[in-house]
Design a protein around this nucleic acid. Structure first.
Lengths: 207, 207, 207, 207
DNA sequence: AATGAATGAGTCTTCATTCAT
DNA sequence: TATGAATGAAGACTCATTCAT
């Protein structure tokens, strides 16, 4: 209950928002601090008073997302699974997808930044793995094992299943929102169901 | 279709190789032309003699990949499909994956560049869509329709099927080679078969 | 002569001490006001409330030294000479050296600052000349003339003698404390006597 | 005989000259690279093409002086001493002073820079000690020992004698040219002889 | 064709200083 | 009185690009 929420000032928020938009649009290396200052309507020096460096600003943009989004999502969802709120894994997956939609759309730029910058910033990758790699992956393994024991999941290596489901979802998100946002996609619901359906039956039929 | 194969000189090749490596490693915006000149053991001016600008160099790095890889792959494979060399779609997919493996590994950096830079360069995206979006997508539609008519593919929207298969394959490649190259993956063959198996049966079982 | 002893507050003293240390260590131009504020555990603004500008702070650091040290030293010592407390000039010189030793060591940083910054600050130089050049030099001339008349000093131009003695002493101090503090020097007393001995006999002997 | 003389271009010389003047006048930290570029009539980037950093420029300004001046001076002079060209140490000292006068006046700014910046740049000090500390000091010790054995020098610790003579000369130079150039000094010759005379007889006379 | 010296706009960052609180 | 957030000019340094050789 200790309120360690950093109490951001208006200027700090303005800087973070400007940086988020610009990093997402033009990439970290392609964005200059003066552009950020400009967009945030703040002096350039102000950026460096609050965030020690440009890199510090990147971390400040991306870190809360990792903390606030990924970690609790897993904790809550895991508990729901263990409390048997989701009898079928389909329900779990559907909940996971539906559940985050709003967040995804609100935080799309951050997601974009995360995806785009991870290959270039070892420290970002480390932070990411620290949050997701250990905590989240462990919980996911628990969940998969749980459904495998209930006989609802194919008897494939746990990690391969996680990768498959995760990439089914992520590749959809990344393709849809990050790489090709201007293509006409079906409505959300249809896509969600199609993902589930494919995971259920595959797409190849016996003749 | 005009065979303008440009007869690259040694220096030009050196520049292209250096640029490819560096762009892949540090990103386009994060790489300086002097670094490229350095790595290619060439004077800075030489780069600009051959490729008008840094952007021109990026296009020169990425374009041949789009031309040489994607286009012919489709042509050949499509013909094989139409010539009934692949009776089952599994065979087609397996061939497609196996077939490119060598190429993927040789041209990984270019793939990385393509994936990483597309969001920031509208002209790159246009070129990409021009090659893939129209040519390739049309052919893929033909193939999918072909197998759907043979009753081997679920009666889902053609484009959704393409997206599903493509993202199954691509997300594996991207995850494996671009984002998380240091994780221990199974051997290639196992992964290939798993992709096919999942496309066949899904991963969810009736209890 | 007006006793404007300014009743320094704790914060003012902290600032002056921090500034003294940092200016001595890194030079005036190489020290930032924020470093000073940091070391003094004071807000940046506080510095400018008390000392109008960075330059003002430099003057505040250096001025009292000139006032408190050089001026009275001459007055007292001169009187002692005139009161015939020092029969031989050797005694006068020895007293002058011994006398200031503690002060030198306590105020070494200020001395360092004075020596290092004088070439870059005309106003500092002016102040220095104002104090030393006129007051002190005049008194020194009196003293030298006094001993010359007593036949204890060679019949060399008064100013040259002053310069010789002063530089004998100062060059020792500057070399020892400012430029090469890490070299092993003899003990203080030995050095003091050596300076006097050299002034007495020189170092060159008739063969 | 290998001509490793770095073959400086016109621009490089212009930069070095401008930097030398400005560093001497305003100090290293007080001089901006844009000022230097301005004075040298060169683009700012050009400075960094030739001298990797501002610090590199400082070293380039100061290093040749240490190499070209101090080292050979000792070698030549030492040989002359050993070849008995100077029977009396007075002659040696006089030669040393007279000898360098031109050089001192031509390279005064560099000397100023060296004296002023050494306290702030450990690497400068190291380089200086590397050149002077070891080579030169050793040779000086040889010379002093030589004259001590001839009975021409007082039987004082060798290092103390060196310090005394060196500081007699240096303090004169530093005072005259670096700190108080505007005071009226006697003509060169008179000062030279006075230094020698003092070293010979001291300034204090038995009554 | 190839060089690499030269450029100056632009980069990230620091600075001394101000001012509302 | 004291603060420290805010400033924007200036700092060192890098960049893509040009051009005389």
């Amino acid at each position: 209950m200790t309120n360690k929420e950093p109490k951001l000032t208006k200027k700090q928020i303005a800087i973070l928002e400007a940086a988020t938009d610009l990093f997402a649009e033009k990439g970290y290396a392609g964005t200059s601090t003066s552009e950020i200052a400009n967009k945030a309507e703040v002096a350039e020096g102000t950026i460096f008073k609050h965030f020690k460096s440009k890199k510090g600003l990147l971390l400040a943009v991306v870190s809360p997302m990792m903390v606030k989004w990924i970690a609790p999502m897993i904790k809550k969802d895991l508990n729901k699974v263990l409390d048997q709120e989701f009898e079928y894994i389909q329900d779990f997956i559907r909940a996971m997808i539906e559940n985050r939609k709003e967040f995804i759309q609100n935080n799309l730029p951050m997601l974009k930044i995360l995806v785009q910058e991870i290959p270039f910033h070892p420290d970002l990758k480390e932070k990411f793995i620290e949050y997701v790699g250990n905590d989240v992956f462990d919980k996911l393994r628990e969940i998969v094992t749980y459904y495998q024991e209930k006989g609802q999941l194919a008897d494939i290596k746990t990690d391969a299943i996680i990768r498959t489901v995760a990439s089914s979802i992520l590749s959809y998100i990344v393709a849809r929102y990050v790489f090709l946002p201007e293509i006409n996609w079906d409505e959300e619901e249809v896509e969600t169901e199609r993902i589930i359906q494919i995971l259920e039956k595959g797409i190849i039929q016996k003749a």
